[in-house]
């Protein structure tokens, strides 16, 4: 019984996460490891981008409160974008913690 087969067409329509090698002659360690960018680097970059969004939102809010000519909606959109990307980060963290705890519970 394959309960998840229904979502396979949906998954095919989503944009693929691509692990592209930075150097051309990098040799794969094994079949399970992606070549080039590791998950660690991807995660680091992602957290950095979320931080950038937070800083941008903070900056534009400061400008608005400081009386500079920033439209109100632009500040609100920046704050909203920062909030959504932060929630995405929290979800990713929850998934990682879940998988870690699942592994810890595994009987050997």
């Amino acid at each position: 019984m394959n309960t998840l087969s229904a979502i396979r067409p949906v998954l095919q329509n989503l944009p693929q996460i691509q692990f592209t090698p930075k150097t051309g002659n990098a040799t794969p360690v094994n079949d399970f490891m992606p070549v080039g960018e590791t998950f660690d680097t991807t995660l680091r970059k992602f957290v950095g981008e979320v931080n950038t969004k937070q800083l941008a939102a903070q900056d534009v809010t400061k400008q608005l409160l400081g009386g500079q000519n920033v439209p109100l909606h632009q500040a609100m959109i920046a704050v909203e974008e920062a909030s959504v990307s932060f929630q995405l980060m929290v979800e990713v963290r929850n998934k990682l913690m879940d998988s870690y705890q699942e592994l810890m519970r595994m009987q050997i």
């Binding site: 992602f46 981008e49 979320v50 969004k53 439209p71 909606h73 632009q74 959109i77 909203e80 974008e81 959504v84 990307s85 995405l88």
Partner: peptide, 20 residues
């Protein structure tokens, strides 16, 4: 660039134009 809210760029520009 992380893009969580798609379609927001054109909407932000439209909001600006309507304000003008």
């Amino acid at each position: 660039m992380l893009n969580c809210l798609n379609g927001i760029t054109s909407t932000a520009a439209a909001l600006n134009a309507e304000r003008i």
